[in-house]
């Protein structure tokens, strides 16, 4: 059971690292999804270990959250692609200082 938690932690870490490492906006959204998968797995594993359905419920909630985030992320992606080079997120940094 602890192996599953380590897997969840790994997913979370990979997602976080992906966000930091990749410059392209799409990949950042992708790694966001991976990151959210971590806690989902953790909840399912915990629910299974305890044998009650609350873990499953939380999993569904996290899915909904992930979907909403990606939805908004993609629409932003479309808007930004018109006005900036979406492949390199670092160029979108007018607001600073």
């Amino acid at each position: 059971m602890t192996a599953l938690f380590w897997l969840a932690a790994a997913l979370f870490g990979i997602g976080l690292f992906g966000m930091m490492a990749r410059r392209s906006l799409l990949f950042q959204l992708l790694s966001m999804e991976v990151m959210l998968a971590g806690p989902a797995l953790a909840f399912v594993a915990a629910g299974a270990a305890r044998g009650d359905a609350q873990g499953q419920g939380m999993f569904v909630l996290i899915l909904v959250l992930a979907a909403a985030e990606v939805g908004i992320g993609l629409s932003l992606y479309l808007r930004l692609s018109r006005i900036a080079d979406v492949s390199d997120v670092d160029t979108i940094s007018d607001l600073k200082g």
Binding site: F5, M19, F43, A46, M58
Partner: peptide
């Protein structure tokens, strides 16, 4: 999103 993920991860561990 990252923040929410962290919060959820925390909640998961707490639930576990």
């Amino acid at each position: 999103a990252a923040g929410s993920a962290a919060l959820l991860m925390g909640a998961g561990l707490a639930y576990a």
